[in-house]
Amino acid sequence: MMDFLTNDLLQLSDSAIRFATPLLLACLAGLYSERAGIFDIGLEGKMLVAAFAAGAFSALAGMSVDDGGWNMGGAAVWVGLLAAIIASIIMAMIHAFASITLRGNQLISGVAINFFAAGITVLIGQYWFKMGGQTPQLHEGQRFEPIILPFAKSLQDVPVLGPVYHDLISGHNIIVYLSFVIVALTWLILYRTRFGLRMRAVGENPGAVDTAGISVVKLRYSALIITGILCGLAGAYLSLGTAAAGFGKDMTSGRGFIALAALIFAKWKPIPAMWATLLFGMLEAVGSKYQTLDLGFMVLPGQFMQALPYILTVVILAGFVGKAIPPKAGGEPYVKER
C-alpha cells in the first residue's frame, strides 16, 4: 500500500499535471471568450494550428542552413512558441470577425475553424516537410526541457515532502509552471481589474456596458486576443513540451472540447478550472498507465479507458455534478441600438 502511495500515486499525479496543462490553458482561453459573451467551440482548431506552427517553426529555426533551416540553436523553441501564438491569434481573429463584426453564428464559425485547422495543418505540413503531415522530430534547443527546481535533488530523501517536491512539483517544463501562474493571473484580471469587471459585464449584459460608454466590440476583440494567446500556448505545449516532440496530425484529439466541458464544470471560474482540468488530466493519466483495467468481476478494455474522458465530459455536461449557468449573453451577437 505504501508502495502504491509513494510510487504509483506520485507517478500518476505527475503525469496528470502533464496531461492537464494543455487542457488548463485551453480552458482558460475559453474562459476569456465565453466570459465576454462569445461561444468558442474552435478551441480545438486554434490549438491544432498552434501545435503545427510551433512544431514547424521550431524545426525550421533549429535546422542547419544547409537543410533549409535558420540555424538558430537554442532560440528555436521560442521561435516555435511565437509562431504558435501568432497562428492561434489569427484564427481567433477570424472567429472574432465572424461573430462580433459580422454577427454570424458562433457555433458554425467554431466548427469551420476546427475543420480548417484539421485540413490546413496537414496540407502545409506535407508541402513543407513531405512527412505525411508530420513535422520533423525536434531535438534539444527545439523543445521545452524539464526544469529541475532548486534543491530538488538534495531534498529528495526527506520523507513524503521530498519525493513530492522532486517527482511531482519539480521537473516540468516552463509552460506547465506558466499555466499555473496564468490561473492566478486570470483570477486577478477577472476579479480585481477594471478590464475584468467590464469583460464579465459584457458577457452578461452588453447593453449596459454599451450604455456606460464602453465599446462592446473592443472588449470582445480584446478577450478573443487573449483566447488566441492561451490557445497558442496550449498548442505549443503539445508539440514542444511533450514526449511527442513534434507535430502529428490531429494531435489535439478532442482536447479543445474536453477543455470546454471542464470550463462548464468549473462554472466559468479560473480556480475551479484548474481543478477540473487536473481531474481530466488524472483520468488521462490513469487511461495511459493502465491500458486495461481489471475490476475483479470484469476487465475494462483499452478502448473504454480511451473513451473515459469523453464519457465523463457527457456526464458533466448533463449536470449530474451541479447546475452550471453560463454567461447570459453567450452566443448572442450584440446589435447596437440606434
Partner: peptide, 8 residues
Amino acid sequence: IMFTGSLE
C-alpha cells in the same frame, strides 16, 4: 462552412 455559414 465558413463563408456560407458564419461569414455570410
